[in-house]
Design a protein around this nucleic acid. Structure first.
Lengths: 191, 191, 191, 191
DNA sequence: CATGAATGAGGGTTCATTCAT
DNA sequence: AATGAATGAACCCTCATTCAT
């Protein structure tokens, strides 16, 4: 499985896949179309990804990675601030990433429900998530006591819903971001 | 007057479809398999549902219906109780339905993201949802002021996440149900 | 094969078939549609015609019969006239039948090239054709000497072409009828 | 640079299609059979012809082309002769082509009435037809004055009928060819 | 290593015909 | 005798994957 060299082509394929999946849905994203959009021959795709499922799994990780890096940047930038601000900054950067990369965001959502993702992929994706940091701090609350992963999931569900609404109605994006965060904050804080 | 069309077969097909979709995912649920699982010739499937998409749409509605009825039963049973209890009863019955019908629940989730559902189907499904009741009462809060759909979606996201965790770890189901409700309650109540 | 009784239903089926074939073409004329158009159950069709092909063959004969009778009427009406007039009358009545029964005409044409017609059917159809009469008289010419069936076929080909053009451009029907006849007359008469 | 697409295979498919259509009729010519007869996987057929209809349309043009080229050869060979001889040469080469390629001829006839041919195909086919030349000269007669299309059609009908008879009785082919031409000549010439 | 032609197993759907009612 | 539900073989077409070039 020694990777063929051209990293450039690999990225082109990944991008083409993201674009295709986002635009046409996974069900209408044949490898031939992805290859063409990547400016590469049909067979070439299989030199970089032995299987379509492999491509999809790598794509998911690739996109999540991208997002995490964006978030990390913001997070470290506010490392010295009080918790609420750090949390909000994190929250905003999550939503903002979705708004800034609608295609990637759409693709991730499609992949997330695709049953093409292996448990391994899912695990890796979770592992790279920096929110863990924030939540560890937040989820020391009473409601979710001892249910860290559940707290994580709830946080993400809330964030994803917020992102979806913000993406759907860009003009109200700011309001959704605010309400969503407020809701999250209330949920996770023992008053 | 020939054989009458059998409601039994229709249900067999619907059940077979639910089972197949839940177990293999929508992408791996060919009509041939569904028909076989229903104990029926493939051609028969198309007598009951002119199109695979029609089958899927009807299935979605069928399952939602099922769930809504279960919930309504609980809800009316507690009609006289104070709001918190009514809300909790609703919440529990939602989660419980998912736990009692894991296949149906999985199928619904797959369908919900399938891009096979028509806007009509989605509208019908929403119309039959009793939560509206609860939420109307709950969502008059400050956080979600004027964002009813968003509040709805957040509520559902929270409930679905809770359901997923409860389904995954049946032994802790009760705990998840409780935390989830608590979180929801905090979120939607201005203290 | 003892025919079931209702002659009425038999005719309804034949008519429905003609209409369907004329309007949608043979390739898009399923038995189910024909039966429905005849106001009869799907299965009933097969009580009157054991096979779709049987229906088609009988239909062809039925329509040809119809036409031949119309022509015979005209022909006998002019039995006493000179040859040219009799020939022209025959010619006109052939064309006119096609114009008066466009559906039947279209259906016949579709059937004629359908490869559903058995040699037997074709033979029967030819046998019932009264033109034979006229042509016997006409084809005693030098060009077609000893090639009666060829002469027949040529006559028919010419007539069918004329009919097709007359049907396509009803306003010029008269002109086509005249030119066609003139051409035919020239062909078959030794000057 | 991968295998180049083989013109050989394309022709094999075209020939297989012609053969199949000629032998079984269009209605009984599934793509699977055509592919098999061409010694090619069914999927391959669709690489060369995106649609069955495309295959059929191209086949029609291919066969007509073939015929036209044969005719043109004869026609140019007699370019210097008097009209009657040129016309007869054209006539003969048309009939002869049909006799020499009975399968192709049968296939063309089936296709011509198939409702699979697009108007474009029909137009192209007509455009490549050299008869136009002869007819332009012939149809300046009185009978068909101002009805060029009709004259064309009549000419073709006569030729096709002649071809059919010649094909059916090869031993009398010469006689049919002669009578047919004589009839045509009488029809189109004001004596 | 890259290419794209070739493959063939399905996929959804239609329809002539059978058969239980 | 009439009905129409049931059937399953075919049909056209798609696509992940292989392999000759």
């Amino acid at each position: 499985m020694a990777r063929p060299r051209s990293e450039e082509k690999r990225l082109a394929l990944l991008n083409a896949a993201a674009e295709t999946v986002a635009e046409h849905g996974l069900a209408a994203s044949p490898t031939s179309l992805i290859a063409k959009k990547a400016g590469v021959a049909e067979g070439t795709l299989f030199r970089y990804f032995p299987t379509k499922d492999d491509l999809l799994n790598e794509l998911y990780l690739h996109l999540k990675q991208d997002m995490c890096e964006a978030m990390k940047k913001h997070y470290t930038a506010t490392a010295a601030s009080p918790l609420r601000e750090r949390a909000q900054s994190l929250w905003n950067s999550y939503i903002d990433w979705g708004l800034a990369h609608p295609l990637a965001n759409k693709a991730v959502n499609q992949l997330a429900v695709s049953s093409s993702l292996t448990p391994e992929t899912l695990a890796k994706a979770q592992a790279m998530f920096p929110e863990a940091v924030a939540e560890t701090e937040l989820s020391g609350n009473q409601v979710f006591a001892g249910q860290t992963d559940f707290a994580d999931a709830v946080f993400l569900a809330l964030a994803d819903t917020t992102m979806a609404f913000a993406a759907r109605h860009p003009r109200k994006a700011k309001a959704y971001k605010a309400s969503g965060f407020e809701a999250m904050w209330k949920m996770f804080n023992d008053d």
